[in-house]
Design a protein around this nucleic acid. Sequence first.
RNA 1: GCCCCGAUGGUGAAAUUGGUAGACACUGCAGACUUAAAAUCUGCCGCUUUUAACGAAGCGUACCGGUUCGAUUCCGGUUCGGGGCACCA
Length: 902
Amino acid sequence: MQEKFNHIEVERAAQDHWQAKDAYRVTEDGSKPKYYACSMLPYPSGKLHMGHVRNYTINDMLTRQLRMKGYNVLMPMGWDAFGLPAENAALKNKVPPAKWTYENIAYMKKQMQAMGLAIDWSREVATCDPEYYKWNQWLFLKMLEKGIAYRKTQVVNWDPVDQTVLANEQVIDGRGWRTGALVEKREIPGYYLGITNYAQELLDHVQVGNEKATLNGWPDKVRLMQENWIGKSAGVRFAFTHDIKGTDGQLIQDGKMYVFTTRADTIMGVTFCAVAPEHPLALHAAADKPELAAFIEECKKGGTTEAELAVKEKEGKPTGLFVTHPITGAQVEVWIGNYVLMSYGDGAVMGVPAHDERDFAFANKYNLPIKQVVAVEGQAAYDDKQWNDWYGDKERGVLINSGDLDGLNHKDAVQAVAKIVGDKGLGELKTTWRLRDWGISRQRYWGTPIPIIHCADCGPQPVPEKDLPVVLPQDLVPDGSGNPLVKSEAFHAGVVCPCCGKPARRETDTMDTFVDSSWYFMRYCDAKNGEQMVADGADYWMPMDQYIGGVEHAILHLLYARFWTKVMRDLGLVKIDEPFTKLLTQGMVLNHIYSRRTAKGAKEYFWPKDVEHVFDESGKIIGAKLKVEVDSADGLLPVGTAIDYEGVGTMSKSKNNGVDPQDLIEKYGADTARLYTMFTSPPELTLEWNDAAVEGSYRFLRRVYNFGSKLTAMDMDSAVQGVVGAKSLDDVEFGKAAKALRLEIHNVLKQVEYDYSRMQYNTVVSGAMKMINALEDFKALDDTGAKVALIEGFGILLRVLYPATPHLAHVLWSELGYANHLGDLLDAPWPQVDPKALVQDEISLVLQVNGKLRGAILVSATADKAAIEAAALANEEYQKFAEGRAPKKIIVVPGRLVNIVV
RNA sequence: GCCCCGAUGGUGAAAUUGGUAGACACUGCAGACUUAAAAUCUGCCGCUUUUAACGAAGCGUACCGGUUCGAUUCCGGUUCGGGGCACCA
């Protein structure tokens, strides 16, 4: 082997070896336990970013370690190839999205191969491939048949200048990103998938503490987020009656305005009702009241996101319409409220200002009456100007001013109210979900065409199964105004209605890209199946054992994939209930953000490499300045120019703070990039970029290499080389120093085992560093068994390190002859902790007096509690700090500490 | 606004889940080697007080309070930061 570490040659040698062996191709092998470990599929944005490097390295470490432990391991890869960025790039460069996408895929695939990932490329999937999206269309048609998919109007962001639908991302401060025009809400028809049909099951499987829960291998935070998102709430749905008639002379909604409430107990405190701007009563009232119509119009301005609505100032207008309280018969005025959502419940709420914080604010703003109906014992009198938390207290509140209901607690009162409205035929107990059905229609080109044909006579008709896939044209270039599919003659050419045979037009909406990512992981199991969506491969590999991806996908993607899997199960396509047994949500990769305002007031961002921090005396960052000359909108900025420091944030092109993994791999090699990302932070935490620390990772690899090349000079005879497993070491005598080395190595190995099992790879790397430190510090080569301990230790180190830095480990393992005895590192046996190496005669215990550290005592490893107590009481540190006081209590934690309370 | 998460030295972090806080690193400082530099190696590195020095004492895991023999870990509250909020992926 070469004397000097050359990462380029090391990595080439290892990768050539793996390629020649086709080392990562796996088949469904019943003789071994299977393990399916998968990363969330990347969007082919152009080149890998650090988040990818982190994600795939975690996946790769898991895969490689488990393979050594004897599992049949699958690590596949594919491309989430449809989506908006391809259209944006097309707009900018006048290149069809397909070309841009496929070029990006080719480049990123090369980068992944350079990282040395153990991917089975024979299973590669790109979602823009008709062979893939055909099955999106096929399953959509099945869902239509089953009534799971249906057509309904949806609210979208409309850019009135470009005459186009905008994604939320394209709405900036309520305006279109390209035109700057004020965005309007507009209702258009679209297709929905009935995810709410599965709400209960989706909740049961994920909910922490639910006896039906199966996703115990998911982080609690994700489970909690999904639970809240599904948002099951039990309450009462009941009607306020009225006799308001529409222009057609019919009672609006049959004279019943339904509301849903979880606080039916406060029903006697109702002083108003509020409906959404889109509610039939609101529209009716606006018909002859221009100021109401204007208010409803006003509510349509701005974006459609929940966050935007939630921070809006709560506003309302009285309609002049009255409805009848179902118990008291009182007339209650209906208001239009901009905070009432048509999509939740019935789009109407009862207003109880005394006991709901939002109603309270609303009533105070518009001088509506406030009626207290709940009292909490021990609380002072109600003050109608200042909100107090006890006003909404469900636990302690008791009803007052509520007639027959007086004295009831929350729970009993809800039941009583449900009975009263039930007896009148005006309502019942009801469960409501926050979860809404999944709208999948997108008015965009680069996605899966929705397989529907619109006939002037027959209406929307499903494309017959034999005509699938409906192929997306590859050569269109969007121009920014609307969907180019609408104008594509080729797309509509020859289309006839499947029902009546007359000429017809294709649906031009495409599917949400979350459809693509809802089942690709099953396609990997059977990637080339032309006959079926999935088949036997999925039965073997699914459910996936470990899913790894960004925490930003904790709700939407994961929920949709769970839903899609359940639909496939109910159609008899797969046998599983849940797709992902275990989930790891990796933290985001962050970097510092530096900016300044240009003379014109625009913000420009600076690349972190061009900037250095300015610190205060205590070492805190207080600002930044340029380290080199930088060309800016205001001309060349000299070295030392003061720059604004914005803290850290996710790496992004727009903030100019991305670190290109390519530079890193070219300069230091893939092993360094992998080691650095694994070592710097635990997988679940955010990772802040630090250039200087990369150097340290490289240094460590060089140390390992140099240690290996020293071993070759040490006359390692093959007999010793063979002695690398714990079992064959039973007959070897070890001297004091060799014993100490083995104690350290095996202790660390034990910890590393644990860290591998919990995927805490940063401490795995620490463990490897401790091992090389111990091996380098070991100087007693003349000790009995010294060489054996050294060669055993290095063999363990290589295997511990291999999943993180496979190239270096592979080359050393082969060159030093370990491979001759234990086989290729790919499938070499995982090292075992030797219990004999861990045996110690004496151990040190911490001595505490009143819980404070006061010293240490050395006791025999087999010492019992009495002996430990005696040793502690005899200790002079104890004597000193006890100051003659008698011990009241002695706590002994075996193997750890003694605490004497005086 | 709502839901979730996080906060530990100059920096990234560790602490086997209630038992020695700061392992392992990065940076920095001092030294060795070198004509010199790089590389490499050795030592030091939470804060304060005290000591000529060895050392000693106290404080310390965002902030305030609680439970406990013992709290980075558990509970209540506060502040700041990050993620998600349904058409970005």
